[in-house]
Design a binder for these strands. Sequence first.
DNA 1: TAATCCATTACCCGATTGTCTAATATTATT
DNA 2: AATAATATTAGACAATCGGGTAATGGATTA
Lengths: 235, 235
Amino acid sequence: MKGGVNMVQNAEEIQSKPISVIIVEDFKLTRVGLRCALNANDDINVVAEAEDAIEGLKLIEKNKPDVVLMDLGLPGMNGIEAMIKCKEMIPDIKIIALTSHDRSEEVIAALSSGASAYCLKDIDPQKLADVVRDVAIGVCWIDPMVAQMTLNALPKIDNIGFLPNKSSSEGRVPLTEREFEVLKHLVSGKSNTEIAKELIVSVHTAKAHVCSILQKMCVNDRVQAAVKAVKEGMV
Amino acid sequence: MKGGVNMVQNAEEIQSKPISVIIVEDFKLTRVGLRCALNANDDINVVAEAEDAIEGLKLIEKNKPDVVLMDLGLPGMNGIEAMIKCKEMIPDIKIIALTSHDRSEEVIAALSSGASAYCLKDIDPQKLADVVRDVAIGVCWIDPMVAQMTLNALPKIDNIGFLPNKSSSEGRVPLTEREFEVLKHLVSGKSNTEIAKELIVSVHTAKAHVCSILQKMCVNDRVQAAVKAVKEGMV
DNA sequence: TAATCCATTACCCGATTGTCTAATATTATT
DNA sequence: AATAATATTAGACAATCGGGTAATGGATTA
């Protein structure tokens, strides 16, 4: 969470490293077009290309790019499945789903399977570069053609008893950085012993952290903490 | 670089009419800040401002702006309600929800009630202008801080069904209905004892179910099961 | 009919968890 | 320099968890 803020500022203020991108797309012509369009920008660097998911995953594992441009209509393993595997390998990676379809199920499936953005292939090349920059810092960007159907797919909430007061912004105690580390391991299913080993501290320390995490998150056990963390995107 | 978007828009679009914007925000200082930040752009024109929802709705009805910047923490009628009414009046209007909270329920509520974008108040002013342009053409834009939780809220598609390849669905053993019930309680953080009480069975039974759930889901403990269930939308 | 799967219950046992109190070192913040 | 917050370690304790084995009845299917 705190990382998000930092990343935003880094991306906007400092022009350190270019954003590394991998393209996975079966049509050679489209591939070339994408590469040219993106490489025309100083701050974006297409580091590799693949024409199918298998090859793409290999390249992604090797290069660990910031952003993946993933075509959904791939032969063999489809894009959705590839995205899931991709996210399993590198949870922090950002994926832009690229396709020419605007089928509702495909859009939702892509976004709920790890994509941070959904672009139709007739997007303006310059705009695509902007999307790459946005997505790299964590923004969710959805093409106008499919934005409405995506928003409609969100669960409706009864706003009756909706009071936007201090319920959480003030009542919520922020986790320390160390506690966030512990939380990540906790979410990945590690035991206190394993967490301790990972952080090179004693089990007592790990337990202490877990304990204060539970209290700060207002939950009773680590399962609730993990679920809440996942649902709220804390990890 | 930051001018990139401007150039695209200017170059491609006829610089005909600027995007008209109405700001609804109770803090005067924030209001001024927003107006200045947006009016600094030639292609954006803040046509009116309101400090509460009632006044805002009147102004919106009169001016019919392209985009509304709506604070969610308004006194009296809250922002969500205002957005719904706003959409009823002018269905095509685009709304950017603006708030300092990052509570999951509020984000989802806003987006499912008509907002096309969700920005936290610490957004870069220049970035906000970009968002206004994006939203004006129908893009859905969501702040990095809340993007993940939004995507997590999307209904998960049962990928097994429409994935042509067996690569991921092969070794997977389906859960029985009873096990699914147990899984739901497990995800909600209940202990075996509580699950047993809920399903009116003995603790032994609950444990047996949990045990086979763990095996079928190929995980080592209930935390991993819960996280996996949430991530894959099994619950 | 026989075979299979499922839900159910039971017992044992070692490992793990969450809470408590308590102390010390390190690091900001003032 | 003094204060506060955080990270670290420890011991102890009740409760829970996960794995193992095993038995029973019901339902479906081959």
